[in-house]
């Protein structure tokens, strides 16, 4: 099987590490070779962060390059647009519609672009955009945005739902499992 490439992008501190951990666990259990590449150190302080998850029969490079991503899972809208050139032709964006102003926008040195979802769609890109923050809050915790996104991502894989739930169970604290299961379902159910 050819390698599948998933990028998880967002703002440092948003919790993308759990998402990549869960995906790594899932694909490993499905019997694939897996590589996950993370960012540590200075880039975590509120900067733009990216995690690469790759799986297939044999994975070499730990990173995903421009034009290679099958999926870009984004925690924040501007970050989806920033990493768009990394998307493969026919690839799909799964994004939270939440916006977080970066410092140049806060200081007035730059503007946050408007209507990014429509602009990405106008380029012929498949975009799943949803208010994951609201869905996570409804599920019981604003911190479950990552699981809402994964719920949505699960749509596009033939891996049975119980396998996703098994990886979820293995990677979140037991007391938060119900909230995260709800978050997963609400992400999955949204169209």
């Amino acid at each position: 099987m050819e390698t599948t490439n998933i990028m998880i992008v967002g703002v440092g501190g948003q919790g993308s590490l759990l998402a990549s951990k869960l995906l790594g666990h899932l694909f490993l259990n499905e019997g694939y070779d897996v590589k996950v590449s993370e960012v540590h150190g200075m880039s975590q302080r509120g900067g733009s962060v990216v995690t690469y998850v790759r799986f297939g029969d044999k994975v070499y490079s730990p990173i995903i390059d421009k034009g290679e991503a099958d999926y870009i899972v984004s925690f924040e809208l501007l970050e989806a647009a920033r990493w768009l050139p990394w998307l493969k032709k026919g690839g799909r964006i799964v994004t939270n519609t939440q916006t977080i102003d970066p410092m140049p926008v806060i200081t007035g040195a730059a503007e946050y672009p408007e209507n990014l979802v429509e602009k990405m769609k106008a380029l012929g890109v498949e975009v799943d955009a949803m208010d994951c923050l609201a869905l996570a809050e409804a599920a019981g915790s604003v911190k479950a945005v990552n699981i809402v996104l994964l719920g949505r991502l699960s749509h596009y894989f033939s891996i049975p739902e119980e396998r996703w739930i098994a990886s979820l169970t293995a990677n979140v604290p037991a007391k938060l499992l119900d909230i995260n299961k709800k978050a997963f379902q609400s992400g999955k159910g949204e169209n």
Binding site: S61, K66, P102, P113
Partner: peptide, 30 residues
């Protein structure tokens, strides 16, 4: 990266699309 090596060895690289708006940088902050 793999693309850097592809380019160095004269292989084709196909980059994804980009929105025309300038994307503000998001540097790390305190």
């Amino acid at each position: 990266s793999q693309n850097l090596i592809r380019k160095a060895f004269g292989k084709e690289v196909s980059e994804g699309p980009a929105v025309s708006d300038p994307i503000p940088a998001r540097p790390p902050v305190m």
